[in-house]
Design a protein around this nucleic acid. Sequence first.
DNA 1: ATAAATAATTGTAATGATTACAATTATATT
DNA 2: AATATAATTGTAATCATTACAATTATTTAT
Lengths: 148, 148
Amino acid sequence: MGCDVMNPTFGFVTNQLKKHNIRLSNRRLKVLEYLCNNQNHPTVDQIYVNLHKDVPTLSKTTIYNTLHTLVEVGLVRVINIEDNETRYDILTEDHGHFKCDSCGKIFNFNVDLDSFTTYELSGFRIMDRNLYFKGICQRCLLNINKNY
Amino acid sequence: MGCDVMNPTFGFVTNQLKKHNIRLSNRRLKVLEYLCNNQNHPTVDQIYVNLHKDVPTLSKTTIYNTLHTLVEVGLVRVINIEDNETRYDILTEDHGHFKCDSCGKIFNFNVDLDSFTTYELSGFRIMDRNLYFKGICQRCLLNINKNY
DNA sequence: ATAAATAATTGTAATGATTACAATTATATT
DNA sequence: AATATAATTGTAATCATTACAATTATTTAT
Ligand SMILES: [Mn+2]
Ligand SMILES: [Mn+2]
Ligand SMILES: [Zn+2]
Ligand SMILES: [Zn+2]
């Protein structure tokens, strides 16, 4: 069933869509549901493979279309950490990302970027702020140490 | 001739390469020179198109190879702002990026990311830190205002 | 309710960046 | 000079993403 973690709650989402005259079709709902239930910054392919089980007629193109639409409205955020995989995040509030080079997992962490400012960008209009780190996560570090 | 802006000076670069037993071939030198002289975070294609004028036998593969090698040694940094274009930066010191959605230019700005830390990542080994903003640059904002 | 207009979805084919890999050339070692 | 190692190239393959036209669903007007 629906979203366990109702971060941008269903009401909010539907509101936003209505506001932008975007229909909440069945397919779009599926994608949104998936993003809510799997907040691990999935790729298009991951979304596709998973939803395809339930809805075999769902096409990858539709996922691309849906995501583009949702990104445009600001309900989904694009994450470009690796140059060979685009990921999507339903959490649109300000937060940073840490990607573990060992297990591949992407972690969220809190950070207040909105308040960040520098004289070098005075006169610039900042619309979008992104912060990401890379390295080895705690769990992987522990595992590595165990094996020696 | 060589690099006007010798940020990672030639000496430093050659040293680093020697240290890692990487030969400074003619092609690699060309790529390094280009990166030094054009610190606008070029794409592989931009590098290729430009160098190809002088060295028609230079292949795109070599540029990829060279960049990968340089990145591995830490002399070049990958920039993933857009999901459809990988850019490369010869400036490896800690700094942030601002990409103008209007003119496409990528600006540098100073920021101390090394000192940044959060309890949420305690126990994590952070190897790489990236901060980038998107929006409209000052010049483009001025131009937009002029036209109204 | 029916017909016309609009939006959503799909599939196919195209694009374009990146990589795999084998062949060739250059450099270093013996 | 002969051999081993590294660099470069070209071709073809891969893979994510997009373009676009055809189909289906939904809304709106009649
Ligand atoms: Mn996130
Ligand atoms: Mn830079
Ligand atoms: Zn890990
Ligand atoms: Zn601009």
